[in-house]
Simulated scan of single mutants.
Amino acid sequence: MRKTILFVDDESDIIDLLKLFLEKEFDLLEAHDGQAAVELFTRHSVDLAVIDTMMPHLDGFQLLQWIRKQSRLPVIVLSAKNQETDKIAGLGLGADDFITKPFSPLEVVARIQAQLRRTYEFNDPAAEPTEIRLGDLMLDHEACILYKRGEPIALSAIEYKLLKLFMSKPGRIYTKKQIFENVWSDPYIADDNTIMVQISRLRDKIEDSPRESFYLKTVRGLGYRFVKKDELYAP
């Protein structure tokens, strides 16, 4: 089935350029401001969004926040701002990738295809369980939703993959290199901030109460592991 990609950018030339590379393979929607994107999103089934940060009516970061309240579909942020703080802000709000302008159209296409593969091309469902239960948490692999004490919690694609990695083998220490290569499926380039931002966002969702039974523990100098509450302060 053809996937639908939503492009949101107030520069029509950028959207037109990317459409040349993608229109034969995907169904494409376009909006030139954040409010128009919201209207398209509510009327269509969107599989991936590529959004600019600086737009009228509703900027890219505001749009990203709105999307994350509705869905965990992959979101790629395009930005003319190349400061590290902007990238961290975008990833912290739930973006799955961040590309600065000017960019190579072929690179954007490759990143779009990579996000679609990671999000929608699953292994044989019979090869793995449909859910993982640990303490108060239940991760539903078929719906890609986390339930905490029975209440659903929305996750981004990256957050889901992170949690699946940790919950699949509780207690195991994962180095930052292992985490990056498993979750992002790219060679590790010592981009510690990207991992730290996503770990922090995940902690906010699963560790918001002293009642929690499992925690993400930082193992200094090594990485992270998923532990029971009584192991949190163990050496």
Rank of each mutant, 00 (worst) to 15 (best):
R2H: 10
I5N: 05
F7P: 02
D13M: 13
I14D: 10
L18R: 07
K19N: 10
K24I: 08
K24R: 14
E25I: 02
L29S: 00
E30M: 11
A31H: 03
H32T: 08
V38A: 09
F41Q: 07
I51M: 13
D52W: 02
T53L: 15
M55G: 03
D59N: 08
L64V: 02
R68W: 09
Q70R: 10
L73R: 05
V75E: 03
V77T: 06
V77Y: 05
L78E: 01
N82Y: 11
E84M: 15
L91F: 06
G92F: 09
G92W: 06
G94M: 08
E107H: 13
I112K: 04
Q115P: 03
Q115T: 02
R117C: 06
R118Q: 11
D124G: 04
A126H: 10
A127T: 10
A127I: 06
E128Q: 12
E131M: 12
R133S: 14
G135N: 06
M138N: 09
L139Q: 01
L139W: 04
I145V: 12
K148T: 10
G150S: 02
S156K: 03
I158T: 15
L162W: 00
K164V: 05
L165T: 04
K169D: 13
R172P: 07
E181G: 00
V183E: 04
W184C: 04
S185R: 14
P187L: 05
I189R: 15
A190Q: 15
I195T: 01
S200R: 14
R201A: 15
R203C: 08
S209T: 10
P210A: 12
S213I: 07
V219G: 08
R220H: 14
G223I: 08
Y224M: 05
F226I: 07
K229Y: 10
D230N: 14
E231R: 13
E231T: 08
Y233I: 11
P235K: 15
